[in-house]
Amino acid sequence: MSKNSQNTAKQKEEKKVVFLLRHTVETYGLLAGFVVLCVFLSIASPYFLTLSNIFNVGRQIAVTAIIAFGMTFVITAAQIDLSVGSVVALTGVITAALVTRAGFPVWIWLPLVLLTGITIGLMHGFFVAKQKIPAFLLTLATMGVLRGIGFIYTRGHPIYIGSRGFRAIGRGFIGPVPIPIIIMVIIWLICYFILTQSKIGKYITVVGESQRVARLSGINVDRVLIFVFVIEGVLTAISGIIMASRLGTGSPQVALGLELNVIAAVILGGTSLFGGEGRMFGTLLGAMVIGTLVNGMTLLNISPYVQMVVRGLVILGAVWVNMARYRVKR
């Protein structure tokens, strides 16, 4: 008996060391990777470290990252949302229509566009929570439907947005910092706070680990599921606005395949693919790594075809590491 307890004590000690090691690698591994990537790129390309390039990358990252923060909630709840690229396109088109064609002021078009995001989120949440449709298949379907609506409305042609004030959202600065980066940081702070400090953040995590445990503890699982899709809907709409402003058009063709970058950022950041463990800071880092990688490849004149392959491989690698990490833990 005493030998037995000694053994378990020793095992516990070992477990602790392994846990600490893993924790360190998980927390700082990606950060180290990011630093290495940046150092490499600043040596390889004279343009990488210029202020204009950094701002450019930052603006691109912001669009992906804002959606990825929402996706962190979604994946932590053991769900997925493949429709984000289409929602960016659709909300961009709607924004352009409201700003240019209807000529609405900001206090009308902004709530309307955000409401579109909320509605899409509510719809996703309803089908997942109340109709028990797997999120993967549901959002695969809406991915086609929502972009298709954008195409039908515009007949495939982008809507040009002339409004100077509107274009400032994506291209303007506050002080020396581009506005999209400021929006991204604010949203990150809020999301980090929700995930780690709030009741709903805790419930999202528990629902992702086990819906049964959540239900037996008296948590309203349906409400939690709807909540994560609504957050994701709103944040994707915000990204849609930034994207439209940056491009100066609302086009149904933008953000094709964006869901891959977004999911890659979340997975790279260490949020468990199985649900039940979310890492908001990791997601921010993950989005920065993906964005920098894409930018770096462009600066180095790597062909877009090769870029596709590299991006795919990075996602594969991230999924592989993620699976290994969380499978061992189970």
Partner: peptide, 12 residues
Amino acid sequence: TVYQDLALADKL
């Protein structure tokens, strides 16, 4: 109720 599988959230 204390369930047979305890119904605890392992990660919390």
